[in-house]
Design a protein around this nucleic acid. Structure first.
Lengths: 116, 116
DNA sequence: GAATAGGTTTCCTTGACAGGTATATTCCCT
DNA sequence: AGGGAATATACCTGTCAAGGAAACCTATTC
């Protein structure tokens, strides 16, 4: 524990954020929205070198954002739902926080109005 | 343009991800879930130095994740909804992608079954 | 079974960024 | 005005990760 929050949670998120924080990787993710692709195609479409692409794909895969399927010589990468769901859950939890606060505020205000 | 996607979009997301990719900053965000806090309190609760904390708060603020309110000597930081909503929208857009794909697959399968 | 195509890994260099310490700034109090 | 509290900034240093070039794997084709 480095702090007062469960580390596993923080660490998983950290890995996801780190992976997505690099612009080329973010573009890979956006590109793969359109469907699975091989390494060479990704590299070409994004004007990246092939080793560079390979390394980025590795990082994204290790963060659980991508999954790979070996087809003979080629490796086909596609988006993997898990981490995106985690991300959405995390982000939406803040909205819930705020909504709760709003509810409490509403309660407070209506109690005021009722003269209690 | 570094690629084939609108840069503003990618860049905004990149800034958010970069900000959240640092564990201490992620912990600050989690801590601020519980409510607004001053710099000193944040530093103390997370066992960070004050300058360190200040710098992290700056990064988070510039990413739109925090907003600051000056109260005399003190600066009170609180979570700011905007970037979290952006994040949630982004993450959930992938889910929509997949759901659409499932729909198309369903269509396809039922057409198969109908012998068309 | 060489040559080739598609990918991965290694090594090196360089730039970005986090942490520490010291210094500046702003506000409050007396 | 002077002193102290709360925060921000500057500067320096060390670490880590991204990019490039080359070497390495593995499957395919002739």
């Amino acid at each position: 524990m480095t702090g007062i929050f469960p580390d596993g949670y923080i660490l998983g998120m950290k890995t996801i954020f780190q992976a997505l924080a690099e612009p080329n990787r973010l573009q890979i993710v956006e590109l793969l929205r359109t469907g699975p692709l091989g390494v060479g195609e990704i590299a070409e479409r994004l004007s990246m070198s092939q080793p560079q692409t390979s390394k980025h794909l590795k990082v994204l895969s290790e963060a659980g954002l991508l999954q790979m399927e070996a087809a003979a010589n080629r490796r086909i990468y596609r988006l993997s739902a898990g981490s995106f769901q985690e991300l959405e859950a995390w982000a939406s939890s803040f909205r819930r926080d705020w909504e709760q606060r709003m509810d409490r505020l509403d309660d407070y205000l209506s109690r005021l109005q009722d003269g209690k």
